[in-house]
Nucleic acid binder design. Structure first.
Lengths: 242, 242
DNA sequence: AAATAAATTATTTTCGAAATTTTATCCAAA
DNA sequence: TTTGGATAAAATTTCGAAAATAATTTATTT
């Protein structure tokens, strides 16, 4: 086994892209932060051009903002963005769910049940602070994906995935400050049951409530982090501490 | 005035991105075509890294496909992709239209009427083959954008724009082979009237019909261009002729 | 002191050579 | 003839130096 690095088939740029996307989504790279090339070069151990390649993709995904001739910053967060994101997610998730219920087969149902079980067990094992776990986050993402994977629309799934990632960044911000946690997660179970009962109306309403309540919690616990009235009007961007 | 080049504020990479996106959308760079760096370098007069930057963005937009360690190809076209694209566009355009009708003000209505007028007059002037004109294409895009611009959702507008661009590539493919043209364009006028009458149900149905009929025409006139049963199983990609 | 300009420093952007990887060609063995 | 493997050629990917641009500091003038 090699000591450390292993892009394995993919290019170095693709590897950096994945790592950087993960770092932005889980707020290791903080919203609004200036992305200095020297720092990034140390952090990811690649050259300028390779970095720019990854950054360019992230710009297209809406996770990074390019300021022509003045570098890149991590996409800022705001209440407006969160609200808009929430509305669009409701539209897309509901459509995906409706289609999946129409088109999914038995194997699909089994996948959902499996994904829920994995998430649920880990949740029990981790106790109240499950939300802070990287592993639970992964399984939570897998569960939500399993619900819609049978919709058969590559475009919808692609759009959904990108929105889900951006929403996760907000969830991540609030999870640090959250004090109250639903002990037993009944929401996910209800969604799953409605989906397997092939009830698109009920499933749609439940997923909408799930998304909107999550947003409400984000605003409640992390709202104070958004749009801090700019102290330095000149350079709004936060510095990266190298 | 400088002789030729003028990125004007934006970076060289951003300039190449715009030119390349336009070339893919209007099929100067043909679907499935292998994108060789030497050819591209001549074509756009920039270096490897700058090219890769632009290509990376186009990958994220779904106009280019990256084949790890084996370069890039223009995103292929297919009936399946067109059908999926059509369904998702119907969903998104209808939502945008509904929201715009709810939220738009008088100035917005005026914008629509202006955009329609510009498109309509050019159409009259150009006669039957208006569809082949670059300028008409631009005004047509502007008109459709004006219909939804008041929806107030940056995310929906962004998604809509990217889908519209990809759909345009299909329209462009069929326009070369099309023999019958609707002499007077009544469809756009009806949509505009329903929107200004603030009738979301009617406007939604009309925009859906507009999109689906366009797709039907694409299949009719350009369907034979899709998914030519691969003659060379090894290298499916078409070569760029430098 | 405040404002403007010039010079300096810091940072980003671009380039093409060098390294890596894939693809094509050739040759020997079955 | 076909198969497998080495060798050569072609293409992509990565790198860091050099050029271009922006930000900061210093100097000069009002």
């Amino acid at each position: 086994m090699p000591e450390k690095l292993k892009p394995a088939g993919e290019t170095r740029a693709a590897d950096v892209l994945h790592r950087m996307r993960a770092d932005i989504i889980n707020c290791t790279l903080k919203p609004g932060m200036k992305l200095k090339f020297e720092s990034l070069r140390e952090m990811y151990e690649v050259s300028f051009s390779t970095l720019r390649e990854a950054l360019s993709r992230l710009v297209a995904e809406g996770l990074v903002v390019a300021e022509d001739q003045r570098g890149f910053i991590v996409a800022p967060v705001s209440i407006d963005d969160l609200n808009d994101l929430t509305d669009v997610r409701v539209l897309i998730e509901r459509e995906c769910l409706t289609l999946a219920i129409k088109r999914g087969d038995d194997a699909w149902e089994a996948t959902i049940i499996g994904a829920f079980h994995r998430m649920d067990r880990l949740q029990e094992r981790l106790g109240l602070k499950y939300y802070l776990s990287e592993e639970w986050t992964k399984l939570h993402g897998d569960f939500h994906f399993s619900l819609v994977v049978a919709c058969q629309s590559p475009n919808l799934l692609e759009i959904r995935q990108k929105l889900f990632e951006r929403a996760h960044r907000y969830r991540r911000m609030s999870s640090q400050f959250r004090t109250k946690w639903r002990a037993k997660d009944v929401e996910h179970k209800m969604i799953m049951e409605a989906v397997i009962a092939r009830d698109p109306t009920k499933a749609g309403k439940l997923i909408e409530r799930h998304i909107r309540e999550t947003t409400a919690n984000v605003v409640k616990y992390a709202g104070h982090l958004f749009e801090a009235p700019d102290e330095e009007p000149r350079s709004r961007a936060v510095r990266v501490s190298a």
